[in-house]
């Protein structure tokens, strides 16, 4: 009795996640809405069939069989009726399967078919972070950021996906279905977000030790807010003004940080780790692992492997004064 109650309680607790910033059943785009519609349609149709089968099975179990004297009776009318019932049920099964397959196929065509786009984003998967590049015809309006995607409401967006190492998969449940990032191949995803908000995405293909700490934030905002953000991101990092941040910049540029990271507007030009030009304006650090704050930046720099074991960010032995100044410098890169 208690066991059954516990099972029901655990099952019901799953329903509590039916709203929120990472939920395929709370769609914020037409595509996610379509997926969610398909999901509920499948649940309804297949649930009804399951219930019907259970009822018929119950009836069959309840009915007492008559005693049969002749082991091989022949009832021509009964046999004919049985044949009709079996044929009708097989036909109904076939039609249901075909309709559902057709709807699913049409949904795929709709989700991944070619469309007009206003914004093109290239997302490159790395172990274990997302490189996000906004591409435009005009190269001076192209820029790179990491672990955060901003989208304008109501504008069709094309997301090109590829990977630098292993197979990853981008999944932002509120906006679209999963699509893999495959090394040496380009996949494309189209989405038009309908509702402003903050959503969370996650790597959905096991990609190594820190797969669980490979998430990203998606900010859907009105067109003018998006344009302001884009103009801010295109600009190089402004030179620091106060003394502490000046020391921080000098320390940053003289330490191994610059071997991997770049800060546009300085000599730091590494290309294998997240671009830090506007790290202070981002929501999270280390692919959604920590919120951005001066304290978290310092904690991450001083011991990345304590927070995300196996991450490619090395532990760099900094003097406490340098660490303090570098975290102030990075936090100020708005």
């Amino acid at each position: 009795m208690w066991l059954r109650l516990a099972i029901v309680a655990i099952g019901l607790s799953g329903l509590t996640c039916c709203s929120g910033w990472q939920n395929a059943l709370d769609p914020a785009s037409g595509d996610a809405g379509h997926i969610s519609w398909l999901f509920w349609l499948f649940v309804a149709v297949l649930g009804a069939i399951w219930a019907l089968v259970m009822v018929v099975l119950g009836m069959a179990l309840m009915m007492r069989s008559r005693r049969i004297d002749d082991p091989l009776p022949s009832h021509p009318t009964h046999d004919r009726r049985a044949a009709w019932v079996i044929a009708a049920l097989s036909g109904a099964t076939l039609v249901t399967v075909l309709i559902l397959t057709g709807l699913s196929f049409a949904g795929q065509r709709r989700l991944y078919g070619p469309r007009e786009e206003a914004v093109t984003i290239r997302v490159t998967g790395h172990q274990w972070w997302w490189e996000v590049r906004y591409e435009e015809e005009d190269p001076s309006r192209t820029f790179t950021t990491a672990n955060e995607i901003h989208l304008p409401v109501g504008q069709p967006v094309n997301i090109k996906l590829n990977s630098s190492d292993v197979i990853h998969s981008l999944w932002i449940p509120n906006l679209f279905g999963k699509l893999d990032l495959i090394p040496g191949r380009e996949n494309q995803l189209r989405v038009t977000a309908d509702r402003a908000g903050l959503y969370r995405g996650q790597c959905a293909e096991y990609c190594g030790l820190q797969h669980a700490h490979m998430s990203l934030m998606v900010v859907v905002e009105p067109q003018d807010a998006f344009e302001r953000w884009r103009v801010g991101q295109i600009a190089p990092a402004p030179p620091p003004e106060d003394e502490e941040r000046k020391r921080g910049q000098a320390a940053f540029l003289s330490q191994p940080c610059v071997m991997c990271h770049s800060v546009r507007g300085t000599t730091a030009g590494g290309r294998v780790a997240p671009d830090l030009t506007h790290i202070g304006s981002r929501l999270t650090l280390a692919a959604g692992t920590l919120p951005v704050s001066r304290g978290n930046l310092a904690a991450w720099i001083v011991d990345p492997h304590g927070i995300k074991p196996g991450v490619n960010m090395p532990m760099i032995k900094l003097e406490p004064d340098d660490l303090n100044a570098i975290s102030a410098y990075l936090e100020g890169l708005k």
Binding site: D303, H305, G306, P309, G310, P314, M315, K317
Partner: peptide, 11 residues
């Protein structure tokens, strides 16, 4: 043994 976290104080 995979030593992800090198000795934080060793130089």
């Amino acid at each position: 043994e995979r030593d992800y976290r090198p000795n934080p104080v060793a130089s």
